[in-house]
């Protein structure tokens, strides 16, 4: 048996030998690409509002446009290259969510359109949906209590 102290010692050696990602440069790349995506979204949204759409509808169409763009880029194999450079810059905005659904659908369509594509489509995005739904319920309850207790008076 290998003792825990031996394992601990080895872990320290490994940590020293393993190169780390360059956090500063990764952050800067993520910032400018992620920021550019947001600026693009804002421009689309402003344009839609200038056409007379209300804020809610304009936001909805903006999200849809960015999702569509991501899916097209993913399908042609370009998104992965951008994401490799940008990291969190593409995974944090809605582009990351759209890409994870599209990539899974593409990868698993060989296993059929029901049990393959449709079932596995949310293999990466599923947790996002589950936990965003759960947190929206929690926030909703807090909001309800807040609204009908403090403001009611």
């Amino acid at each position: 048996m290998i003792s825990n102290s031996e394992k601990e010692r080895y872990k320290n050696i490994v940590d020293k030998a393993s190169p780390k990602s360059n956090v500063l440069s990764d952050c800067l790349k993520a910032f400018w690409v992620g920021g550019s995506i947001c600026v693009m979204g804002q421009l689309i949204s402003n344009y839609l509002k200038s056409l007379g759409l209300d804020k809610g509808t304009a936001s909805l169409y903006t999200s849809s446009a960015i999702i569509l763009l991501t899916v097209i880029l993913t399908s042609f194999g370009f998104f992965e290259q951008i994401a490799k450079y940008a990291g969190a810059g593409t995974s944090v905005p809605i582009t990351g969510f759209a890409n994870s659904v599209c990539a899974s659908a593409l990868e698993f369509k060989k296993e059929g359109i029901v049990l393959g594509m449709a079932a596995k489509m949310f293999v990466l995005a599923g947790p996002v949906i589950v936990y965003s739904t759960v947190s929206s319920v929690i926030v909703g309850v807090i909001y309800y209590i807040y609204k009908y207790t403090s403001f009611a008076k």
């Binding site: 399908s75 194999g77 992965e80 951008i82 990291g87 995974s91 990539a103 593409l106 990868e107």
Partner: peptide, 17 residues
Amino acid sequence: EKQFRLPMEAGSQRPPT
């Protein structure tokens, strides 16, 4: 990749290790 990691077109950064 499909079995052990992520779908091919899923955008991610590979760690240096």
